[in-house]
Structures are given as C-alpha cells and as structure tokens.
C-alpha cells in the first residue's frame, strides 16, 4: 500500500471527526456522535484492500468506514449535521450512514445487528459467483450478542465470503470488556473454529496486510474470516448533546495508547515533512464544514418519502 496516501486518508478521518467534535460542543450535532478517532488505521488499512464493488456494512461508529469507502465528506458532513444535501436526506444522521454509489450498504445503531445483514449480502455474493467478498465491521462488544454467534455459525456452515473486522478497543460504551466477558474476541472465534488473525490495529500497514490475506481467502471460497484489530478510542465512546462524557478510562491506559497513535506510527515511517499535508487536509475539512453550516435544512415534505406504507401518514384521519 502507498503509506503516504494511507496517512492522508487517516488524517482526513481524524480532522473530520475532530471538527465534528468541536461542532458537538457548540450543540451543532443533532443526536449523538461516536468518533472514530484513534482507530483510523483499521478503516483505512482494511478498505484499502477491498474492491470497489464489494459491499461494506458498518455500525454506529461509521464515519471512518464511510470516508475510507470513498463516500463524499461533504455529503457526510451535511448528513451528520442534518443539513440539506446530506447523504441520506437527514434520515440517517451520524449513526446510520449508507451510500449505494460507494457500496456502503449501511450502518446500524443496534450492536451486532450488522453481522447477519452482512452475511446475507455475502450469500448474495456467493450466489452471484463473481468472487466478491463482503466486509463487515464491529466492535468487540458485538461479540457479547447472541446474533453474532448465530451469524458466524451459519456463515461457517455455508462458507460465506464474509470478512468480519472486529475493532477490539477493549471497552463497550463505558464498561471494560474484561469486566463482562471471560474470553478475548480471538479466543471466542477460535472456539467456533473460524480462521482468524490478530493484528496491531494502530499499524495501518499491518492491518492492510492482514485484510488483504483474509479477503483473498474469502474470495477463494475458504469461508468467513475474522480480523481482530487491537486498537483504542482516542477520545471516547460517544457524546450526546454538547457535553463530552466524563473520563471513564484509566489515565495510564489512555497515555499508553496515545503514544501509539496510528498517525504517529505511520508518520514515523514516512521520510517526508508532513506539515503541508496537514495544512492542506485541515483547509479541506474547514471548507466543507463551512459549506455544510451555510446550507439549509432538509425539505419537510421529504419526511414522508422512502417508506412503504403511505396510507397511514399524518392527515389520513379526518
């Protein structure tokens, strides 16, 4: 992979998210925001290995996946801020981004619900017979949900071309995973006899190599593959409203991971001066943010489009 290009993609995610977090503090983000900061190497490393016609399924922490999948940052920003011209017309907001044009099938805000949906897309891919895989992201908290195991056993029995990327950041919301689960994600999928690999999720090259190999296996008919990427959230799980959550993780743990920030790790291997690149990407994000904030809100008349049962709309009663 082109490390400089990957760095740029990670930086764009970082600055996009930080810009949104500033907006959130000013009360400009409706609902909640689950920042991808700290995990950029996973999205960029994995999606750099996918083919553009392979479906990606995400979850509420979807901004990084969407950007790395090639979605328009302008339309994403507008969607997240609920401005006119958003990717999903103001109906998805931050947690449910979908973009057919870039094969982002969608994102769900229910933990683990994306796994069977991705497996169904993988069954379509298998029937299509064109050697395509489907990629799905989840947090390590998703492996506490029953649907994950239903899905993984069916995917294994049917040898579905499904790549599961588990972003193991050690926490599920404000609860440490080790407090509520007796095995690691890798141990859990080992128990199902699924091919899997553990990788440093803050090393974009390592992630890319692992995803490339796993996707090749999926495409060749070897059945579902799991990549467990060890990583960490630089900021926090989520912010609802204008106040960031109180600090809920040990300082020592945060500092240890901060020293291994994915941008720092990648920059250490790039011999060039990155100052200009930072300024360039920052200017790009500033511009699209200003443009989004200057835009109006979605047309209220579109509130009732895109739904099947239209006879029960407001005003149906006399």
């Amino acid at each position: 992979m082109d490390l400089l290009s990957a760095y740029r993609d990670m930086l764009r995610i970082r600055l996009f998210e930080e810009s949104l977090l500033r907006c959130a503090k000013q009360g400009l983000v409706p609902g909640s925001i689950h920042p991808y900061t700290g995990q950029e190497a996973v999205a960029v490393g994995v999606l750099g290995a996918r083919r553009p016609d392979e479906w990606v399924v995400s979850f509420y922490r979807c901004h990084g996946h969407a950007l790395a999948a090639g979605c328009s940052p302008q339309r994403m920003m507008r969607e997240i801020l609920c401005r006119d011209g958003g990717l999903c017309g103001g109906k998805s907001g931050s947690m449910h981004l979908a973009d057919r044009a870039h094969h982002l099938l969608g994102s769900t805000s229910i933990v683990a619900a994306q796994l069977p949906i991705a497996a169904g897309a993988a069954m379509s891919a298998q029937l299509d017979g064109a050697g395509r895989a489907v990629l799905v992201f989840c947090g390590d908290g998703a492996l506490g949900a029953g649907g994950a195991y239903e899905t993984l056993t069916i995917a294994a029995a049917q040898r579905l071309p499904l790549l599961v990327v588990c972003e193991d950041n050690g926490w599920q919301d404000q609860t440490a995973s080790r407090w509520v689960r007796h095995l690691s994600p890798a141990q859990l999928v080992s128990g199902l006899d699924l091919p899997h690999v553990e990788v440093d999720g803050n090393d974009v090259e390592a992630v890319h190599d692992a995803a490339t190999a796993a996707l090749a296996a999926c495409r060749s008919g070897a059945g579902p593959q799991v990549v467990v990427a060890h990583t960490y959230l630089r900021d926090f799980h989520a912010q609802l409203g204008d106040q960031p959550p109180r600090q809920y993780r040990p300082q020592e743990e945060r500092q240890r991971w901060a020293a291994r920030d994915p941008l720092t790790v990648a920059a250490g291997r790039i011999p060039a001066d990155l100052t200009d690149l930072h300024a360039e990407v920052a200017a790009e994000i500033d511009e699209l943010l200003l443009s989004a904030l200057a835009a109006g809100t979605p047309d209220p008349a579109t509130a009732t489009t895109g739904v099947s049962v239209t006879t029960d709309l407001i005003g149906a009663h006399r």
Partner: peptide, 28 residues
C-alpha cells in the same frame, strides 16, 4: 439447494441475512 436454503433455528440471524440479501438485489 442454493435457493431453498436450509437454516438453523436462529430467527434473528435468519431475518438479518434475508435483509442483507434483499438489499443486494435479491428477493427472499
């Protein structure tokens, strides 16, 4: 058998998979 899919007793995953297929150009 590839269209008449035998499934385990796992309605939650089964319905999610049906959705995933339906979203990707098929009908279930």
């Amino acid at each position: 058998a590839d269209r008449m899919v035998r499934m385990p007793i796992a309605e939650n995953a089964m319905l999610g998979m049906a959705l995933g297929m339906a979203l990707t150009g098929r009908r279930v």
